[in-house]
Amino acid sequence: MYINIKRATSENLNEVSELFNDYRVFYKQDDDLELAVSFIAERLKNKDSVIFYAYDENDNALGFTQLYPTFSSLSAASSWVLNDLYVTPSARRLGVGKKLMDTAKLFAIESNAKGIALETAEDNVNAQALYESLGYEKEVGFYNYFLTL
């Protein structure tokens, strides 16, 4: 299968928004394409995230990843948070996720980032296997906290 990766622009809003909506549904959120379009349009307009998406030789969208910039005071360096990775069910196990992750890594290197941080659900063993095969390591000794407002 031919897999190409492209950085998303406003021209790709529909394809990426559909993938983003499917991603949210995968994580048990309501199916809401209107919300997905609004959210992705805002990210692209404000340039506050970087989105790469995969497509095949027939321009069918296969998956996407979204990265957000972050900074570390202790290391005085920038990093990227890989917040989203999604591959359509029909394209899984075909190398799409790996290709998206490789593209994210290359982008991080080109932007002189210290690294890429990500998290995934404890039961998402397929994603964990992919991340670990690419050299990502589980951090030990840290707890994640979140304040819902």
Score class of each variant (00 low, 15 high):
Asp59Gly: 02
Arg43Asp: 01
Gly95Gln: 12
Glu137Asn: 06
Phe71Gly: 05
Ser78Arg: 09
Glu132Ile: 10
Leu13Pro: 00
Leu74Gln: 11
Tyr145Ala: 00
Arg92Pro: 04
Glu11Ser: 11
Lys114Glu: 11
Ser75Trp: 12
Thr120Tyr: 08
Ser78Ala: 13
Leu85Tyr: 13
Asp48Gln: 08
Ser72Gln: 08
Lys99Ser: 14
Leu13Val: 01
Val81Gly: 05
Glu132Pro: 09
Val81Trp: 11
Leu118Tyr: 06
Lys98Gln: 14
Asn144Thr: 14
Asn112Ala: 07
Thr9Phe: 07
Asn112Lys: 15
Leu44Met: 00
Tyr53Ala: 00
Gln29Lys: 15
Ala129His: 15
Gly135Cys: 08
Val96Tyr: 15
Leu100Met: 06
Glu137Pro: 04
Asp22Gln: 15
Tyr53Gln: 01
Tyr53Met: 02
Phe107Cys: 04
Glu139Met: 08
Lys28His: 15
Lys114Ile: 06
Thr120Asp: 03
Lys99Cys: 12
Gln66Glu: 03
Lys99Gly: 08
Asp59Tyr: 14
Tyr143Trp: 08
Gly115Met: 09
Leu85Asp: 09
Arg92Trp: 11
Val37Ser: 01
Asn46Gly: 00
Leu85Gly: 05
Ile40Thr: 02
Gly115Ser: 05
Asp30Lys: 14
Trp80Met: 05
Ala117Cys: 05
Glu18Trp: 00
Ser79Tyr: 13
Val125Asn: 13
Asn124His: 07
Gly115Glu: 05
Phe107Glu: 02
Glu18Ser: 00
Lys28Arg: 14
Ala36Asn: 07
Met1Thr: 13
Asp48Pro: 02
Leu130Tyr: 15
Ser133Gly: 01
Glu15Leu: 08
Leu33Ile: 14
Glu18Val: 10
Ser73Ile: 10
Val16Asp: 02
Leu13Asp: 01
Asn83Phe: 01
Leu13Arg: 00
Lys105Tyr: 00
Val81Met: 14
Asn46Met: 03
Val50Met: 01
Ser38Lys: 14
Asn144Val: 06
Tyr131Ile: 11
Leu33Trp: 05
Gly135Leu: 03
Glu34Arg: 03
Lys6Asn: 07
Leu118Ala: 13
Tyr136His: 04
Glu110Val: 09
Gln128Gly: 00
Asn21Pro: 08
Leu44Trp: 01
Leu67Pro: 04
Thr88Glu: 07
Arg24Tyr: 09
Gln66Ile: 02
Leu35His: 15
Asp59Val: 05
Val50Pro: 04
Lys6Trp: 03
Asp102Thr: 13
Lys98His: 13
Gly63Val: 04
Asp48His: 08
Lys6Leu: 03
Leu19Ser: 02
Leu82Asp: 00
Val50Asn: 03
Asp123Ala: 06
Pro89Gln: 09
Ser73Leu: 10
Arg93Pro: 01
Arg92Val: 05
Ser111Val: 09
Thr103Ala: 12
Arg24His: 12
Tyr143Pro: 00
Asn14Arg: 08
Glu110Gly: 06
Val96Gly: 12
Asp32Tyr: 10
Val50Asp: 02
Leu85Met: 14
Ala121Cys: 01
Leu62Glu: 10
Val87Pro: 02
Ser17Thr: 06
Tyr143Phe: 14
Asp123Ile: 13
Ala117Thr: 13
